[in-house]
């Protein structure tokens, strides 16, 4: 069981992620969008959306630091466990609360503003469930861990080591199998969220427009001579009758 959950599932989720992105890029560029609902409602979105997105960006950054930087490195520069966790929990709390409040506002908006509710996609229901689940479990795990309810479990000696072992293709699944349940569930929801990226509106994160800073203002393009041929039907496009 541990092997399937912590040794196979992570790779399956990566395969589905990559396959999904390839499918989007090759067959459904038309569906690759934020599906913004700002034209319907702007007041709540202008508070909730930046809170969630910026908060989430720092949460992701925190995960990267926590999972990828080995304990020996921070020990070497003289940061002891207590200081590390103090730093991690304090900065993480700010980012986490921002993201949580943000998503709270966004979900409230999606449920109460009728036009936004009607603009909700089928994939959104699953995506929101998994996203909210992952966030709630993450917060729960952190709170329990900090409060000492998990004994002296240190995720930097458990979850992080397992996560890094995934990259060497020799997953230490037994290690993850011994982690507290809250962490295990959080990882499962995280993997599910990861998998959902190409198949839901989350796909817009893959097209963060950083090249905008470097390109000329006005874009010129030649006429697409591909249009001279009979066009194939493409996903998402309506046929003109």
């Amino acid at each position: 069981m541990d092997l399937i959950l912590w040794g196979v599932l992570p790779y399956a989720s990566v395969v589905l992620l990559v396959a999904g992105l390839v499918w989007r890029a090759r067959h459904d560029r038309f569906g690759w969008t934020t599906h913004s609902s700002q034209v319907h409602e702007s007041r709540l979105l202008r508070i909730g959306s930046p809170l969630f997105h910026f908060g989430m960006a720092f949460v992701v950054l925190g995960h990267v630091v926590g999972l990828l930087i080995p304990k020996s490195w921070t020990d070497a520069v003289g940061v002891d466990d207590h200081t590390y966790h103090l730093l991690a929990v304090s900065t993480g709390a700010v980012a986490g609360v921002a993201a949580a409040v943000g998503i709270g506002i966004l979900v409230h908006r999606r449920l109460t503003v009728r036009a936004v509710r009607r603009a909700t996609l089928r994939s959104d229901h699953l995506m929101y469930t998994v996203l909210l689940g992952a966030m709630a479990l993450g917060i729960l795990a952190t709170v329990l861990n900090s409060a000492g309810a998990m004994g002296d479990y240190n995720y930097r000696d458990g979850v992080s080591l397992w996560f890094r072992s995934l990259f060497t293709l020799q997953p230490d699944y037994a290690l993850m199998g011994r982690a507290p349940l809250a962490f295990q569930l959080h990882v499962l929801f995280g993997l599910a969220l990861f998998t959902l990226i190409p198949y839901s509106r989350l796909v817009h994160m893959v097209s963060a427009p950083l090249t905008y800073l470097f390109r000329p203002y006005v874009v010129y393009r030649g006429r697409d001579t591909g249009q001279l041929e009979q066009r194939k039907a493409r996903r998402g496009w309506e046929r003109a009758s």
């Binding site: 690759w32 934020t34 817009h204 097209s207 905008y212 006005v218 874009v219 010129y220 393009r221």
Partner: peptide
């Protein structure tokens, strides 16, 4: 996203529907 462009031949400004990301 660089999805909008001015056509070099006739100056028509268009949105590339495949490249627009809805920003």
């Amino acid at each position: 996203s660089g999805a909008m462009y001015k056509r070099a031949e006739d100056g028509i400004v268009l949105v590339d529907q495949e490249q627009c990301r809805g920003w």
